[in-house]
Amino acid sequence: MKIALFPGSFDPVTKAHVDIVKRSVGLFDKVYIGIGVNSSKAGLLSIEKREQILRAVFESDPRIHIIAYEGLTVNFCQSIGASYMIRGIRTVSDFEYEKAIAQMNHSLAPEIESIFIVSKPGYSSISSSIVREIMRYNGDVTQFIPKEALAFL
C-alpha cells in the first residue's frame, strides 16, 4: 500500500492546499494530511479548528485522513507507515527551501521519498501567511479558501 503524508500548518487551509491534495490522491492509496504542531508558534486558528476545517473539506474521500502531530516529520511518517512526503511548490524560492528540507529528511530517513507537486499557476500566489494577514484585517478571503472552510472562519 502506498501511503503519503502532506504535512503543513494549514493555518488556514487554502485552495492551493486542496489542489495539491486532490492531485495527490490519484498517486497513493492513502494520503494523510498532517497538521504540524509547533509549540513555539502561536497560530491564528487552533489545531482543533484546523482539523475540523480539513475534515469538512475532505469528508467525501475515504483515502484522505486528517491528523495532528508533533516532532520531526520523518519520524511521524515512519509512525504512520508513510513512505512518501508530499510538498507543494509555488515558486523557485519554495523549491530551494523544500529541496534543503528534503535532503535533510533523506539523511535522517532514506526510505522516505519527498514528492514535489508544482502548484497550478492560478494558485502560485496563495499562501496561508498572506491569507492570515487578510483575515487579521477583516478582508475578504473567500477567493483563497475552500467554501467548506468559510463556516469555520
Rank of each mutant, 00 (worst) to 15 (best):
M1E: 10
H106C: 12
V74G: 13
R63Q: 11
P110V: 11
G43L: 08
H17F: 06
V25G: 00
E51P: 05
S60Q: 13
V74Q: 14
S107F: 14
G34Q: 00
R23S: 03
P12E: 07
Y137G: 09
A68P: 15
R55A: 05
G139D: 09
D94R: 03
E113Y: 06
T91W: 09
I80T: 06
K147H: 10
Q52Y: 03
E51I: 15
Y84H: 13
E113T: 13
L72A: 09
P62L: 03
S129E: 10
Y123L: 04
S79G: 05
H106Q: 15
L54P: 00
S114H: 12
I115Y: 12
A100H: 07
A4G: 09
G88S: 04
F10V: 01
E113F: 08
K15D: 09
Y84P: 04
A56E: 07
F144H: 04
Y32S: 02
G36M: 13
Q52M: 08
F116M: 04
I145G: 01
A16T: 03
P7D: 00
E148A: 14
Y137C: 14
F58T: 03
I64T: 01
Q52K: 14
H106I: 06
S93Y: 07
Y97N: 06
K147A: 14
L5K: 04
S114L: 06
G81H: 11
I66A: 00
V13C: 09
V37D: 07
E98W: 05
E48I: 05
P62G: 05
M85V: 13
Y69Q: 02
E133Y: 04
L54H: 02
E59G: 09
A100I: 12
M1W: 08
